[in-house]
Design a protein around this nucleic acid. Sequence first.
DNA 1: TTCTATGCAAACCATTTGCATCCAT
DNA 2: ATGGATGCAAATGGTTTGCATAGAA
Lengths: 175, 175
Amino acid sequence: MNHKQAPHLPQEIVLFAQNKSVGVGSTNWRRDIVAKFHSYLVDQGLRPTHQRHVILTYLLRSTRHLSADEIFKAVRKEDVTIGKATVFRTLRLLEGCKLARCVMKGNGTAYYEIHWDRPAHDHAICVSCGSIQEFECMDCQKQQDRLASKFDFTAMGHRHEVFGHCASCRRAGVT
Amino acid sequence: MNHKQAPHLPQEIVLFAQNKSVGVGSTNWRRDIVAKFHSYLVDQGLRPTHQRHVILTYLLRSTRHLSADEIFKAVRKEDVTIGKATVFRTLRLLEGCKLARCVMKGNGTAYYEIHWDRPAHDHAICVSCGSIQEFECMDCQKQQDRLASKFDFTAMGHRHEVFGHCASCRRAGVT
DNA sequence: TTCTATGCAAACCATTTGCATCCAT
DNA sequence: ATGGATGCAAATGGTTTGCATAGAA
C-alpha cells in the first residue's frame, strides 16, 4: 500500500512555489521534463500512460498559466477520450514531483504552469484582465530565513502575489 | 441602482492585503470598528442590521483566522435565525470597506480576520497543523514600487504566504 | 494475469443566487 | 409603505471520488 495512484498529499503542501526547483539545465529542458516525469512514474511504481503524456506535453507547449478546465478542453481535442478527472489527477501528480506549480488568481481557481530550473518567481496579477506578469523577489527568500530565526518556523516554500492593474488596462482607462 | 445589497466587487480585488489599512488609532479599536462599519453602512444607504452586528462582533472577539463556516456555526449559537448566506454577504461587505481581510490557506477555503491599523502583515502557515503566524515583510512593500517602475504595473495590494512547519509540529516529529 | 489508471457520473464543498418574506427607515 | 436584507433551498463551479472497465506490466 505504499503508492497507489497519485500520492494523496494534502493540497496545502503543493499549492505554492517550492524552494527547490527541478534542476534542468539543458537547452532542451522540455525533453528533460518529459523524461523526468517518466522516470518519476516508474520509480514510484506508477505507469507512464498516454493521457499523462498528452497532458504534460500540452502544458509544456503553453506559455500561459492554465486552469485545469482549459487544459481539459484543449487536451480533449487531441484525444477525445481524456476525462476531466484524469487532468486533475495528472496535475496533482505533476505538482507532487514538482514539475508543475500553480497560482491562485484569487477567484478560487488554480492556474498551472510547468516549473523548471529558474529562480523562484512570484506573480503580479492584473485584477482587470487577469494577465500575469512574473517577477523575482529575492527579498522573499531572505524573509524565509528571518522567519526561521524569529519564530523557529521551517519554510518549505511560499506564495507571493501582487494584485493591481497592468499597464495596458490602466491605459485603457480601468480604475 | 447605485447600491443595493453588497456591492458586487469581483472577488479578486478583495482577497488580499490592501495597501492602505483602516486607520484606527484609538485604544478601543473594537468600538471604533463597530462604529466605522455602522457609518459605512449608513453612508452607502445600507442598513445596520442585527445580523451584521452579531457577525462583526464575533469576528472582533476572535483572535484566530476563521472560515465562513466556523463563523456561521458560532454565530448561529447566538442567534438561531442567522443564515449562512448572510454570513457570506456580511463578510463580503466587511472586505469591501476594508474592515476585514482574508487569507487563503491553500485548501480552497477563505479564512477571515479583522483588519485594523497596523503594518500590512503576511502569514506563515504550518502545513501540518494549519496554524498561522503573522509577520511583517517590509521588503514586499518595496517590491511593489519596483514592479511599478519595471513593468508599469500599479499595485493595489498583495498576498504573501510562507508555507512550512511550525516549531511545535517539528518538535512533534512532523516531516 | 495482476493491479494500476481511466472515464464517467455522482459526490463534495465553499460560495452565490432566486425568491418570498421580513424589517429598518 | 418602500425597498433593502434575510433565510432557505436550490444552483454553481471547481475539484474529488466510487466504481466498473480498460490497459500497462
